[in-house]
Amino acid sequence: MTIQKRRGLFLGVNFFLHSLNSFVLTYQWFTVKYEAEIKRMLYDIQNFYLICINSLVKIFKRPLYINDIIEQMEYAGASSVFIVSLVCLFVGMALSLQLSAELSSLGLKMYTGKIVGIAVIREIGPLVTALVFIGRVGAGQAAEIGSMILGHQIDTLRVYGIDPIKKVVIPRVVASVFMLPCLTIIGDLVCLFGGYYIAVFVSNQSGSFYWSSIIEELTFENVFSGSIKPFIFGYLISCISCFYGLTTRGGAKGLRTSTTKAVVTSIVVVIAMDFVLTRILLYALGFSL
């Protein structure tokens, strides 16, 4: 081996050892600095999955707490009808207004009903209703459970052997899973009525044509695509809200933080999940892109 080769080998090994040393030092610095945060994050992820799994596994385990489920359904469902309808009405009107303006410039105004129908049934109805649901029900659930933690009510349940998952989480999850689809149906209808009002009274289109083109779009694919989402959204929103409620610490400030986190996380997760579900459903139902 020539001297140049030896020197090259020496420099190579030296460089490798230095790199390894830097990597180890960086790793040590990182673990020391962020160890607590990493541990807490992993612990939170584990707890979140436990809540998600237990809320399904324990659902039929006695006692069933039927009265609590009904009470939560009333809060999540009946009490949310007005706000969901109001928001969906304006969304439907705005959508129809935008489409009418754009399509009339192309001479395709008669397609307003068709496009509003597809957009509302498949996408906008479930998504807008879920977002309103997060603001009203998800935030309420996180705040209520959080205040039960701070007021030691959850501790009281645990002390006397009452499972908080069964008594507090499952009624809220069940209520959300069944009420969000109902609200979505109402939201879809109101959205379509909003679109109808603009199409007929502002854009001077035929009302019967508007409805007939919407009815044409009530295919199995469209209805299934729009109706499966709220079940999944309801489950996710409720699990996220209950998780943040149950991990509330530190008085009023902690309650504010956990409620905010519940709302923000739910919004991000629902929108991301909407994209994932749309992709899966389009593929599964045979839509070509």
Binding site: H152, D155, T156, V159, Y160, G161
Partner: peptide, 16 residues
């Protein structure tokens, strides 16, 4: 174990 005790938390912890 918990059934061996009766507990009264601070401020009562009544269900609102």
């Amino acid at each position: 174990i918990r059934r061996k005790f009766s507990i009264v938390f601070q401020e009562g912890a009544l269900f609102d």
